[in-house]
């Protein structure tokens, strides 16, 4: 328990209050930096690297030169043209908690709480565990948003302090999964089986990316998986959107382009996989 609080720090790239989309009720979502998947459609590319980074929007830059010696630790830096920003800030458990507790009254009325997301928040399991414990001690509903490519032991650690998992199935087809996320789905699906068996609530989220996983076959396979191992409390389809594209450029990364799926398609796929 010595590790607790002040000494442990992690890089958080955003704390979003009043989130309506990361679980039940009104929530505060804490985004960890660092991910062990590299999904080609990721709309938060700044979440992938665990270290702080500089985002540079070249077209806004006037080349004034003020940032020539900028380092990622320069907290007070400000580009007057919004061309450069530092992504990521160090937080201790207590600092994160101080933000989360502010909306407690909203969680209580709405059945909401905190959602730890990322990136992959479970990569920093000890710190996450401390945060979860602290929230639970204070009566806050906790959710963990994970891609699931994590040793089962990590899940076991946090299970007693987690009310809900938001769990992604990105593809059932192993090759597609490997090609588009960088890893196979074996461990992910194994973990999901175990989670579905345990007492915790699970919401499964399926990103729908055209020409990757938007097929009836994929949905049927997911359905078959649920039929064998149990249905999660909720299934959500998340249509791909291109809102993260500009950030790839700002990070000097190349961006993969995908189409945005149409509404009818989503409806059709949803009807296959969602049992109600």
């Amino acid at each position: 328990m010595k590790l607790r609080n002040e000494t442990m720090k992690t890089i958080i790239f955003d704390i979003e209050r009043n989130s309506f989309v990361d679980g039940p009720g009104i929530r505060t979502t804490v985004f960890f930096k660092g991910c062990n998947l590299k999904c080609k459609w990721c709309h938060n590319p700044e979440s992938q690297n665990r270290e702080k980074e500089i985002l540079f929007y070249k077209n806004k830059c006037t080349w004034c030169g003020r940032c020539s010696e900028l380092t990622v630790d320069d907290e007070h830096f400000l580009c007057f043209n919004d061309a450069k920003e530092i992504c990521g800030k160090e937080y201790t458990v207590d600092e994160v908690f101080a933000e989360v507790i502010k909306d407690k009254a909203f969680y209580e009325t709405s059945g909401g709480g905190v959602t730890f997301s990322g990136g992959e928040c479970m990569l920093q399991i000890d710190l996450l565990l401390e945060m979860l414990k602290k929230c639970k001690e204070n009566g806050i509903h906790t959710a963990v948003d994970t891609a699931g490519h994590i040793p089962w032991e990590s899940f076991e650690k946090i299970l007693p302090f987690t009310d809900l998992f938001l769990y992604d199935i990105k593809a059932m087809n192993e090759e597609i999964h490997k090609e588009y996320t960088g890893v196979t789905n074996t461990c992910i699906l194994e973990n999901l089986k175990k989670l579905l068996k345990s007492n915790v609530d699970v919401w499964v989220r399926i990103p729908i990316v055209p020409d990757v996983n938007d097929t009836e076959e994929e949905m049927k396979n997911i359905k078959a998986f649920f039929e064998s191992y149990g249905y999660p409390a909720k299934i959500e389809l998340l249509p791909y959107h291109a809102m993260g594209e500009h950030k790839y450029e700002a990070l000097g990364k190349s961006v993969e382009k995908f189409d945005v799926p149409d509404k009818e398609k989503i409806e059709k796929l949803k009807n296959i996989v969602v049992p109600y």
């Binding site: 009043n18 309506f20 009720g25 009104i26 009254a105 909203f106 209580e108 009325t109 709405s110 909401g112």
Partner: peptide, 17 residues
């Protein structure tokens, strides 16, 4: 509708606060 429910909760909390 789901977001509307959350909005109702949000505004009720604001009054409770």
């Amino acid at each position: 509708e789901e977001n509307f429910e959350k909005t109702v909760d949000m505004l009720e909390t604001y009054f409770k606060n």
